[in-house]
Amino acid sequence: MANIKSAKKRIATSERNRLRNRMYNAGVRTLVKKCLGACTDYGTHPDEAGRERLTISVRAAFSRIDKAVKRGVLHRNAAAHQKSRLSQAVKHALEPALPAPSANG
């Protein structure tokens, strides 16, 4: 344990920041899971209500990811990676894969 006053302050600050960062990361993970769940739900049962839930969940996840970057919890490249992954999942849910063209013309 630290004996110096400034070291004790630094430990308290680090702990406070760790807990705040943990809260933001947990929120990001939760919203990403909800978005991916909405993608699979819409993929199995496509309807207008599911599409609306999907767009709302994507917006919420993107917003939380951007806020985490703004506060320094996530690196911007990590956030871009997560947003890209979510966008790809949403695209595949909304536009099912087309059959591959045949090779013999």
Score class of each variant (00 low, 15 high):
residue 2 A to N: 08
residue 3 N to E: 11
residue 3 N to F: 04
residue 4 I to W: 03
residue 4 I to V: 13
residue 4 I to T: 10
residue 4 I to R: 15
residue 6 S to Y: 03
residue 6 S to M: 02
residue 6 S to W: 00
residue 7 A to K: 13
residue 7 A to M: 08
residue 8 K to F: 03
residue 8 K to N: 15
residue 8 K to E: 14
residue 9 K to F: 02
residue 9 K to D: 09
residue 11 I to D: 10
residue 12 A to S: 07
residue 13 T to K: 12
residue 14 S to K: 14
residue 14 S to M: 04
residue 15 E to A: 07
residue 15 E to I: 04
residue 15 E to D: 11
residue 16 R to L: 07
residue 17 N to M: 09
residue 17 N to S: 11
residue 17 N to D: 09
residue 19 L to E: 10
residue 19 L to Y: 03
residue 21 N to Y: 04
residue 21 N to Q: 07
residue 22 R to K: 13
residue 22 R to Y: 05
residue 23 M to V: 02
residue 24 Y to T: 07
residue 24 Y to A: 11
residue 26 A to S: 13
residue 27 G to M: 09
residue 27 G to N: 14
residue 28 V to A: 04
residue 29 R to W: 01
residue 29 R to M: 06
residue 30 T to H: 03
residue 32 V to C: 08
residue 32 V to I: 11
residue 33 K to V: 05
residue 34 K to H: 05
residue 34 K to Y: 02
residue 34 K to D: 13
residue 34 K to Q: 07
residue 35 C to I: 00
residue 36 L to P: 00
residue 36 L to I: 02
residue 40 T to V: 06
residue 41 D to H: 02
residue 43 G to P: 01
residue 46 P to M: 00
residue 46 P to G: 00
residue 48 E to W: 03
residue 48 E to H: 08
residue 49 A to C: 01
residue 50 G to K: 06
residue 50 G to A: 11
residue 52 E to T: 15
residue 53 R to W: 00
residue 53 R to Y: 04
residue 54 L to C: 08
residue 54 L to S: 10
residue 55 T to M: 13
residue 55 T to R: 13
residue 56 I to W: 04
residue 58 V to M: 13
residue 58 V to W: 02
residue 59 R to I: 00
residue 59 R to L: 01
residue 60 A to F: 04
residue 61 A to M: 04
residue 63 S to Q: 13
residue 64 R to Y: 01
residue 64 R to I: 06
residue 65 I to V: 12
residue 66 D to P: 02
residue 67 K to V: 10
residue 68 A to E: 00
residue 69 V to E: 06
residue 70 K to Y: 07
residue 73 V to E: 10
residue 74 L to Q: 04
residue 75 H to A: 13
residue 75 H to W: 06
residue 75 H to L: 10
residue 75 H to V: 02
residue 78 A to D: 15
residue 78 A to M: 12
residue 78 A to R: 11
residue 79 A to Y: 02
residue 80 A to W: 03
residue 80 A to P: 00
residue 83 K to W: 12
residue 83 K to I: 14
residue 84 S to A: 15
residue 86 L to C: 11
residue 86 L to T: 07
residue 87 S to M: 11
residue 88 Q to K: 15
residue 88 Q to Y: 03
residue 90 V to S: 07
residue 91 K to S: 12
residue 93 A to Q: 10
residue 94 L to Y: 05
residue 95 E to V: 09
residue 95 E to I: 07
residue 95 E to G: 01
residue 96 P to T: 11
residue 97 A to C: 03
residue 97 A to F: 01
residue 98 L to R: 11
residue 99 P to G: 12
residue 99 P to F: 08
residue 102 S to C: 04
residue 103 A to K: 09
residue 103 A to Y: 02
residue 103 A to G: 07
residue 104 N to A: 12
residue 105 G to Q: 05
